[in-house]
């Protein structure tokens, strides 16, 4: 599924990611953990194609196809979805309008037929019910005046409707109370499928109690410095990142 080889990324003059390699096969959930400033968000933005993140070396492919030469909307159409750490507010654009425009834009890029209004409403209602969201909320402008938890839930709702094949969850647990964390995790777990993969980026182990990873990687100093099973997350929780930060420096 996702294959990253010797990736180097700079912001301005400063190199943030310094030779990162990672394989996430279809059907698996991988967690990336690391201290602040390790390059976690840089990795997620680079994969999604944000401007200002210059790839100086290396490659990233999804199902063997190059990602780095595509613009963000083309990557989205290929199935890349980034759940933002801080979802943006879109004033004046009702949530339903936004998601349907996104869905149909992706379909158009892929050469698929449009989703009609009735089909879309059905999808949206089902997704909202699963995430225990009031459907009327979807008539309001996207994320405007929503709480942090509501915004995160809205990201998962978009994910459920857009059905991407590769999910990147960037600090999805931040700003969530325990109840919201459960609902969001259930939403994410419902997306697990043999033809889908996930990259869960988090600072804390807490989220991984709810979204069980197949592999855990430690990112420090712009490289993967350790990889292991779910037990690695527990070990990090107990011992902290210090050993890795030193190793990276």
């Amino acid at each position: 599924m996702l294959s990253i080889k010797d990736l180097h990324v700079s912001i301005g003059e400063k190199e943030i990611i310094k030779g990162l390699s990672l394989d996430v096969p279809a059907g698996e959930v991988h967690a990336i953990m690391g201290p602040n400033g390790a390059g976690k968000s840089t990795l997620s933005y680079t994969l999604a194609g944000r401007s200002g993140y210059a790839v100086t070396e290396g490659s990233a492919t999804l199902n063997g196809e190059d990602l780095l030469g595509l613009d963000p909307s083309e990557r989205a159409a290929k199935g890349v979805f980034l759940s933002f750490q801080y979802p943006l507010e879109i004033p004046g654009v009702p949530t339903l309008t936004f998601i349907r425009a996104a869905l149909n834009a992706q379909r158009k890029t892929r050469g698929e037929p449009e989703c009609t209004a009735p089909q879309f409403l059905k999808l949206a209602r089902e997704a909202a019910a699963k995430l225990k969201m009031d459907f009327d909320m979807l008539k309001r402008p996207l994320n405007v005046g929503f709480s942090g938890g509501e915004k995160k839930r809205m990201e998962i709702l978009q994910m459920a409707i857009l059905q991407p094949s590769f999910l990147i969850l960037d600090e999805t647990d931040s700003g969530l109370d325990i109840d919201a964390l459960k609902i969001v995790s259930e939403g994410v777990n419902a997306m697990r499928a043999p033809d889908r993969a996930m990259l869960v980026i988090t600072h804390y182990q807490r989220l991984l109690d709810y979204i069980k990873p197949d592999r855990v990687h430690v990112l420090a100093g712009g490289r993967i410095v350790a990889s292991g099973g779910p037990e690695l997350a527990l070990e990090l929780e107990a011992k902290g990142y210090d050993q890795y930060a030193k190793a990276a420096a």
């Binding site: 194609g49 613009d71 963000p72 909307s73 980034l82 933002f84 996104a102 869905l103 834009a105 978009q158």
Partner: peptide, 9 residues
Amino acid sequence: FYAMQRGLG
């Protein structure tokens, strides 16, 4: 960027 990440050109 947010809108484009969701698929809009």
